[in-house]
């Protein structure tokens, strides 16, 4: 029996670099990792802004921005090994792009296509999941199968604070704990589920406590501290069995481009969180350590611009959609009735 103390999260969120860019004294990842976290966050934020812009031009049906949550998006992905699997949600396009999935493929679904765009097996990234919390169970199943097959694979599943209220989250935490499945549940607590604040979502002092009841090691971390998220996920991947990590962060933009966040949250709250920005604090830290200078920062901005331009160009190209393909993958082999419907559509 594991002792309760070993499972409990800390009362205060763990952190390595504070909002002002000061190191807090813990073991920091190596400098090249810190630089890579920074680089990917800058590139990721630019991608995110580009995707939002594409909705205004009618090139994307909808886009849920993760601006402000880059430390979670990038920290988790950089901590993952090649053999691990990512189970993302609609919010996590930046994480998926960071796992080297081509951006135009990542945006397929949001541009209104009928499929997820990328090959999940090629990148070890499940399709972006919209039915909340359902992906948690897929992650547990995949990880348990890996264990049965003797593979060293960990599943990292991303979910939001709202999703922790869904039944599937609880079934997944329980199954993972009972099976000792190698799963990392990373809860990006951004304070809102669309318009509903955390206070209406839970009475628990921390979402991390939800793991403890199932016998799972749980952590509470500063979710705007990329070094911390990276370290926590890396530790969780290296440890036996599952871990629940609650990362405290904030969604700077509205829920999606179609949402109006001024209806449910005060602007001074947004201002406060802008002061806790994950990119600015790491930049301050890196500059103070002279790991980053103006020239390097400019090169990085140029790189991010270049990548965004490539996304823009690709997304501005019209894709041919063939309605006949709608029938191709419903079953492994199209049924006679589907073949007949396809022919009807074609004629």
């Amino acid at each position: 029996m594991t002792t309760l103390d070993a499972l409990l999260p800390t009362a205060e969120p763990l952190g390595l670099i504070d909002a002002e860019g000061n190191a807090l004294g813990g073991d920091l990842p190596p400098d090249e990792i810190l630089l890579e976290l920074y680089r990917r966050m800058v590139v990721g934020r630019r991608f995110d802004a580009q995707a939002t812009a594409l909705t205004k031009q009618g090139r994307l049906a909808v886009y849920p921005s993760s601006r402000g949550q880059e430390a979670c998006q990038i920290g988790a992905v950089l901590a993952m090994r090649e053999q691990d699997w990512l189970f993302p949600t609609y919010r996590d396009s930046v994480a998926i792009v960071s796992r080297a999935v081509p951006p135009a493929e990542v945006l397929s679904l949001l541009r209104g296509e009928w499929h997820c765009g990328y090959d999940p097996h090629a990148h070890r990234v499940a399709p972006q999941c919209t039915p909340l919390a359902t992906n948690t169970l897929h992650a547990v199943g995949l990880a348990h199968a890996a264990r049965l097959k003797g593979e060293d694979t960990v599943a990292v599943v991303l979910l939001g604070d709202g999703a922790t209220s869904e039944g599937d989250t609880h079934e997944a935490l329980n199954f993972a704990a009972v099976w000792k499945a190698p799963v990392v549940f990373l809860v990006q607590n951004n304070g809102y589920a669309i318009s509903v604040p955390l206070s209406k979502q839970t009475a628990a002092p921390s979402l991390a406590y939800k793991g403890v009841g199932y016998g799972m090691r749980s952590m509470l971390v500063d979710g705007n501290d990329a070094a911390m998220v990276y370290t926590a996920v890396k530790q969780a991947i290296a440890s036996d069995g599952p871990t629940l990590i609650e990362a405290l962060t904030y969604r700077i933009e509205a829920h999606t481009n179609a949402d109006d966040a001024t209806r449910y949250r005060p602007s001074d709250e947004v201002q406060r969180w802008l002061g806790r920005d994950p990119i600015a604090r790491l930049e301050t830290y890196l500059r103070a350590r002279r790991l980053l200078d103006d020239a390097a920062a400019e090169r990085l901005t140029a790189e991010a611009e270049e990548r965004a331009a490539a996304v823009r160009e690709e997304m501005n190209r019209d894709v041919e959609v063939d309605p006949a393909e709608l029938f191709a993958h419903v079953y492994a082999t199209p049924t006679p009735a589907l073949v007949a419907q396809r022919k009807e559509l074609e004629s």
Binding site: T136, H138, G141, L142, A145, D168, A172, F175
Partner: peptide, 28 residues
């Protein structure tokens, strides 16, 4: 009991984890 086993009592959990296992090459 690695091939035939009791699960916790939760039907969504049973089917949801079966989906993940099938993604990883098993036939639940």
């Amino acid at each position: 009991d690695e091939r035939v086993f009791d699960t916790p009592l939760a039907e969504s959990g049973i089917v949801g984890t079966a989906i993940g296992m099938a993604m990883n090459g098993l036939v639940p």
